[in-house]
C-alpha cells in the first residue's frame, strides 16, 4: 500500500504554506502528524500532488490559556494536551476525550487540528469541539482569516467548511469559569482505541444546591458529523440532573440523531447506544462535580 507520487514541501512559515495552497488548491494538502492522512494516502483514498508539511512551524504548535479559554495552534500534539496539568483544568473535556483517542503512538504524532480537519464522524475531538462550541480559525492567502463555529464546521463525513485554499490556523476553545464544573466522555468500541461505535460528551455546571446552571451535551458516531444539542441542554437548566431526567434528555438526543449502520453496529443498536452513553456521561459528570460546601 504505497501512496501515489507527490511533491513534498516543508513550509518555512505560515504564509509559505498558504501560498502553496493558493497556487495548487485542491491538489495540495497540509500535513501535520499524518496519523489520519498517511493511511488514507497509503490506501490511495487521498492523493494530493503536493504535501506541505506545517508540523514544524513553532507558532502553530503552541497554545495560550486566557481568561475566556484556550487559543490553540492546530499542530498541537494530542499527547502534549493530554499530559499538561493546566489543560486538565482549562479543558477537562478535551483531556478526557483524549484518553479514548487511538494509542500512545498515534497521540505522540497526532495533532488536535489534524483530527478536526479529518472530520471522521466517530472521532472524539470533533465532538468535543461541537459540544464546547469552539471556534475554528481558517486562513488563506487571498482571503485572510475566517472564523467558523465548530457546529458549522463539520459538514459531513470527512467534509469540513475548509475551502481548498484554506488552512486551519487556530482553534479557540471556550473554558468554563467558576466552581461546580465537571465533564464526562463516554465511548463504546469493541477494542480500546478504536473509532467509537457511539460516543457521548457532556459538560455541566452545578450550583451549591446541585442545580444545573450550565450544560452542554453531544453525541459522536451518530450521524455523518458530531452532534451538539444546545436546546436540549437548556432543558437541564434549573433542575437536578437525576437518572430519569438524564435518560429522557439522552433518549431525545439519540432520537434526533441519524445513526448509520455498518458491520459493527446497526442503526437501532447504535441509537440505543448513544442514549445509554449520554445518560451515563451526564450521571457521571454529576458525581464528579467537586463537593459543595454546606
Amino acid at each position: 500500500m504505497k501512496a501515489a507520487p507527490f511533491t513534498f514541501i516543508r513550509a518555512e512559515h505560515l504564509q509559505h504554506a498558504l501560498g502553496l495552497l493558493a497556487a495548487h488548491g485542491g491538489d495540495c494538502k497540509p500535513i501535520a502528524g499524518g496519523q489520519s492522512l498517511v493511511p488514507m494516502m497509503a490506501m490511495r483514498l487521498a492523493r494530493p500532488s503536493v504535501l506541505v508539511d506545517i508540523n514544524r512551524l513553532p507558532a502553530l504548535k503552541t497554545w495560550q490559556i486566557g481568561c475566556r479559554g484556550v487559543r490553540m495552534g492546530p499542530t498541537t500534539r494530542q499527547r502534549d494536551v493530554a499530559s499538561d496539568r493546566q489543560m486538565h483544568s482549562a479543558l477537562p473535556l478535551l483531556v478526557a476525550a483524549l484518553q479514548w483517542v487511538g494509542h500512545v503512538q498515534t497521540r505522540n504524532r497526532g495533532t488536535v487540528g489534524g483530527s478536526l480537519v479529518h472530520a471522521d464522524p466517530a472521532a472524539e475531538q470533533p465532538l468535543v469541539a461541537c459540544v464546547l462550541d469552539a471556534t475554528l480559525v481558517l486562513e488563506s492567502a487571498a482571503g485572510g482569516e475566517r472564523r467558523v463555529a465548530a457546529r458549522d464546521f463539520f459538514l459531513g463525513s470527512m467534509v469540513t467548511a475548509t475551502t481548498e485554499t484554506e488552512c486551519l490556523t487556530a482553534i479557540e476553545w471556550p473554558a468554563w469559569d467558576g466552581p461546580g464544573v465537571a465533564c464526562a466522555f463516554e465511548e463504546l468500541s469493541i477494542r480500546h482505541g478504536d473509532f467509537a461505535m457511539a460516543a457521548a460528551a457532556c459538560q455541566i455546571q452545578l450550583d451549591e444546591a446541585g442545580i444545573c446552571r450550565r450544560a452542554a451535551i453531544g453525541l459522536g458516531g451518530m450521524s455523518d458529523r458530531p452532534l451538539a444539542f444546545p436546546d436540549l441542554a437548556v432543558s437541564l437548566l434549573g433542575r437536578r440532573i437525576e437518572p430519569g431526567l438524564a435518560r429522557d434528555v439522552a433518549e431525545t438526543a439519540a432520537e434526533r440523531s441519524e445513526p448509520g449502520s455498518d458491520i459493527h453496529a446497526d442503526t437501532a443498536y447504535r441509537r440505543q447506544l448513544g442514549a445509554v452513553l449520554l445518560r451515563r456521561a451526564l450521571l457521571r459528570a454529576v458525581r464528579l462535580v467537586p463537593a459543595m460546601a454546606g
Partner: peptide, 26 residues
C-alpha cells in the same frame, strides 16, 4: 470480535485492520 463479513453481493466488508478486529493486550 473477529469476522470476515460479507455483503449480500459478496463484498468483503472487513478487509482491513480497522474492521477486522484483532484482540490487543487490553
Amino acid at each position: 470480535m473477529e469476522r470476515f463479513a460479507y455483503s449480500p453481493e459478496g463484498q468483503l466488508l472487513s478487509g482491513s485492520f480497522m474492521d477486522y478486529l484483532l484482540p490487543s493486550a487490553q
